[in-house]
Design a binder for these strands. Structure first.
Length: 467
DNA sequence: ATGTTC
């Protein structure tokens, strides 16, 4: 009797090992191979009937496995109806995003949620979705670009002191864009985040360290940008006088590193939740007190720090080239999960395309390549789980935008607003986004607007179609 | 979002 005979029974490794043990014992006692295999099949079919037999050990294990499977299945069952949640700017929110949020609020681990006015359909949790879960972290509740974030630097110079040609040249020389793109070896800058001990604590992170070192200080494709613009304060704020300033605004994330972390743990979560309702497959979670959940949390946290370091380098390069230190620097992550005290316990608050907006917290909400971005201060509005939108939100999908908009229309829009664009596809056209003014009006309980940034010279990835 | 998805 050997493993080959046993493997035909279709047992998992632990049960198969027990089956092999008992089979060998029976063989030694003179039972025929055929009788042993018949007995094993019957034990598998009805373990309860064999709890007092020679096959008891295997029967107990099979029974335990069945129970934990049933338990897992029960633990994965969706609630019959979604928990209630608030949405802001209902007229701006497409039904698909609401349906996705409804599914998220049916998860057994869900405790609270909210939908921001820039909401649109994404994988799993909608973009603009906020979800508080108990002892569970959902990789697709954070999203693919873990730690995607904004940073603003306000300089003491007046905007007209930087001519457009010079701004373009600075962006060309000191920023890099696109999938797979890193800095040339001799141009790379070091950063303490690359020495974080976490890199050596998981094989996946060890493997991704070199890529992260190559790509730090760069921006990706899609909606990532670095832009010079005019920052206006109507009243003194954060140590700055009323007035108009030259400023730099960036939108970037954790690049290939974060994307690979997201992919790895999303797959793992889906495998752990084979019994999950297909409607919620992309919302598969990892228990925070499991090894996998803890590993995701560590990797996610590192990707969040890395993304902020990324912005820091973008701004440091430009700041150095301008020979000017910023008067004010503000940044925030908008794709991440946080541990926050809520409903008398600590919950895992996922913000996927949502700006943290605790009372007093500063944040940045961009409109589009040719619309204003806003410096905001959170109001800690509880029904919104102390969050706000992370931008205007798409009103046209990428394909719809490419089909509906012409290069001329986009060029006209930019010309009217005096915006110069380097790179940027039709799918990122201002007309593909909701009106940021409408989105801001829908979240006046969530944030106060402190200042307005108007883009002037914008760099994005070229994508397939340059305007 | 990412360099091409076991």
């Amino acid at each position: 009797m050997n493993g080959k005979h046993i493997s035909k029974l279709g047992l998992n490794p632990k049960a198969a090992a027990l089956a092999l043990n008992v089979a060998r014992r029976q063989e030694d006692l003179g039972t025929s191979r055929r009788d042993i295999l018949d007995a094993l099949s019957q034990v598998k079919a009805d373990p309860e009937a064999y709890l007092e037999s020679d096959y008891a050990e295997l029967a107990r294990e099979l029974l335990a496995q069945t129970c934990s499977q049933v338990q897992r299945q029960a633990g994965s069952a969706l609630r019959p109806a979604p928990l209630p949640y608030a949405e802001f700017g209902s007229a701006l929110i497409e039904p698909g995003a609401r349906s996705q949020m409804d599914v998220a609020m049916r998860l057994p681990v869900a405790r609270a949620g909210a939908l921001m006015p820039d909401a649109h359909v994404g994988y799993g949790l909608p973009i603009g979705g906020v979800l508080a879960a108990e002892n569970a972290v959902i990789p697709y509740g954070v999203g693919v670009d873990i730690g995607c974030s904004m940073q603003l630097s306000v300089f003491g110079t007046r905007p007209e002191q930087l001519p457009t040609a010079e701004a373009l040249s600075l962006l060309r020389r000191h920023t890099r864009f696109g999938a797979g793109v890193g800095f040339e070896r001799r141009e790379r800058l070091d950063h303490p985040v690359l020495d974080d001990p976490a890199w050596s604590e998981q094989p996946l992170l060890r493997h991704l360290h070199d890529k992260a070192a190559e790509q730090i200080g760069t921006s990706g494709s899609g909606n990532h940008f670095v832009e010079f613009g005019t920052f206006t304060l109507q009243a003194p704020e954060e140590g700055l006088e009323t007035g108009t300033y030259l400023a730099l605004l960036s939108h970037s994330g954790s690049r290939g590193f974060g994307a690979q972390v997201a992919g790895h743990f999303t797959k793992l979560a889906e495998q752990r939740h084979a019994a999950l309702d297909p409607a919620a497959r992309k919302l598969a979670w990892l228990p925070l007190d499991s090894d996998e959940g803890a590993a995701y949390w560590q990797a996610m946290t590192l990707a969040g720090h890395y993304a902020l370091a990324n912005h820091q380098q973008i701004h440091a390069r430009i700041s150095r080239a301008l020979n000017e230190a910023p008067l004010l620097s503000v940044r925030n992550s908008h794709n991440l999960a946080w541990k926050e005290p809520l409903e008398d316990s600590e919950l895992i608050v996922h913000r996927k395309g949502a700006t943290p907006a605790a009372a007093g917290q500063l944040g940045l909400i961009p409109g589009s390549m040719a619309d204003p971005a806003y410096l905001v201060r959170g109001r800690g509005y509880a029904p919104a789980l102390a969050s706000a939108s992370h931008g205007a939100g798409r009103q046209l999908g990428r394909n719809a935008a490419r089909a509906a908009l012409s290069k001329t229309e986009v060029a006209d829009y930019l010309a009217q607003r005096g915006v110069t664009l380097l790179g940027g596809g039709i799918d990122e056209a201002p007309q593909a986004y909701k009106r940021i003014e409408d989105v801001m009006a829908a979240q006046s309980d969530l944030v106060d607007v402190l200042g307005e940034f108007m883009p002037k010279v914008v760099r994005m990835d070229s994508g397939g179609q340059d305007i």
